[in-house]
Amino acid sequence: MQWAMTLGVVVAGILTIRPLGFSGRGLVVAVLLVINSAVLLARRLPEDRIPQGLVLPWLTVGIAAAVALIGVSRSGTGYLFAFFLAGHIGYRLETRPALVLAGICSLLCGGVLYFRLGPGHDELPWVLGLATGTPVLVGILNRSQRQAVQAVIAAAESAERAARAEARTAALTERSRIARDVHDVLAHSLAGINMQLELADALLDTGDLEKVREANDKAHGLVRESLKQAQWTVHALREDSLPLLESLTAMLGSSGHRDVLTVTGTAREVPARVVQNLLRIAQESLTNAARHAPGGDVGVELTYAAASITLAVRNGPATREVNAVVGSGMGLIGMRERVALLGGTVTAGPVTAGPDQGGWKVEAVIPV
């Protein structure tokens, strides 16, 4: 539409502006018409194609050429160039310089017509010349709308970049969480299995088959424990996991610790991330209890408070022989990382009083 209007002004000028020729005043009019047409057509160029420092000189030259064309020609639609350039001044320039340049255009065009400085245009009132700068207001309005649209687009792009960054951060966080889960399942169990298998391999050379069978049985026990932990991990990793209370009860039942859960407060639904991390903390605590205090009593307390939820896993001292399995030390670190991501705290240490004295206690408090 804008291209059609621009071409329409140029064509109307060629058809109506007179004199138009190759000598004398006609040549001057022709040159001014070419300059006006070129300046007017240039307004369709993208903004990044014209250096900002050339915008003001370019539009000033255009206004001067439009005023001169009105003064030199004796008839025609030369004033249309001034009208369209004034509108584009408001679009290309900031408000203050645009108003100043448009005001100069109005004064010059009105002066040419008022003082009859040219050979013609007796039929055009000087008020028309003063009105040539008024389209600058339309240009300013269009520029404001363009800037508003650009601001909205920039905000949308910024929001999209922020969303992508957040997604990358979430992916990295999820990878860290999965790494902790893999460690919790594999590191402890595989280390113990490897130790028992190495022991069995060493005992083969001694011919003590009884001890070989004992080491092999312990390795099989660790394998069964690893499979059980893998089931817990799959359950904890599922986004559609059961509510915390049911999930924790099922975990304790599958690990052989029935009727050891004590619930304080009113059970309520908690976010999936909290459920997953509390289940992993419970799993790690039960694994450590089975490894370091076999046969010891186990107690689990789940406390629902107004602004937090607390999970405490307590075990008594060992009642059976403890297999010396060296851990990686990453279990407690993983617990702390999980709770820190949720804004909570975790404490772990020996039990110094009560029926479980000599045992161990892990307590995690997470705000919800």
Rank of each mutant, 00 (worst) to 15 (best):
L7C: 07
V9G: 01
V10D: 01
I14T: 02
I14Q: 01
T16Y: 12
L20H: 04
L20T: 00
S23P: 00
S23A: 13
V34F: 12
A38H: 09
L40N: 04
L41C: 08
L41Q: 02
L45N: 01
L45K: 04
R49C: 05
I50K: 00
Q52M: 09
L54G: 01
V55M: 11
P57R: 10
W58P: 00
T60C: 03
T60L: 06
T60F: 10
V61T: 10
I70C: 01
G71Q: 02
S73M: 05
R74I: 14
G78C: 01
G78K: 01
A82I: 11
A82R: 04
L85H: 04
A86Y: 04
G90C: 06
T95H: 08
P97Q: 07
L99T: 08
V100D: 03
G103M: 09
I104F: 08
V112K: 02
F115I: 10
F115R: 08
L117G: 00
G118M: 02
V127D: 00
L128I: 15
L128E: 14
L130P: 01
P135V: 13
I140S: 00
N142Y: 09
R143S: 04
S144T: 00
S144E: 00
R146T: 12
A148E: 02
I153A: 07
E160F: 14
R161S: 13
A165S: 14
A167P: 03
R168I: 15
L172I: 12
E174S: 13
I178Q: 14
I178A: 12
D181M: 13
V182E: 03
V182D: 05
V185W: 11
V185A: 05
L190E: 07
G192E: 10
N194Y: 10
M195N: 08
Q196A: 02
E198W: 14
L199F: 11
A202L: 14
L203C: 02
D205Q: 13
T206F: 07
T206Q: 09
E210Y: 05
V212L: 05
R213T: 07
L222Q: 06
L222Y: 07
L227F: 14
K228W: 11
K228S: 13
Q229P: 00
A230Q: 13
T233E: 11
H235G: 07
L242T: 13
P243Y: 14
P243A: 12
L244Q: 09
L245V: 15
E246G: 01
T249D: 07
A250T: 15
S254M: 15
S254I: 14
S254G: 03
S254C: 10
V260I: 15
T262V: 15
G265T: 09
T266L: 12
R268S: 04
E269V: 13
V270M: 03
V270T: 05
P271F: 12
R273N: 03
V275E: 00
E284I: 15
A289C: 09
H292N: 02
P294E: 07
G296H: 10
D297I: 05
V298L: 11
E301M: 10
L302V: 09
A306N: 12
T310Y: 04
L311W: 03
V313C: 01
R314F: 05
R314D: 08
G316W: 11
V325Q: 09
G327Y: 07
G327S: 13
G331Q: 06
L332G: 02
R338C: 02
T347D: 13
P350M: 10
T352Y: 03
A353Q: 11
G359K: 01
V362F: 03
V365S: 09
I366G: 00
I366H: 03
V368Y: 03
V368I: 15
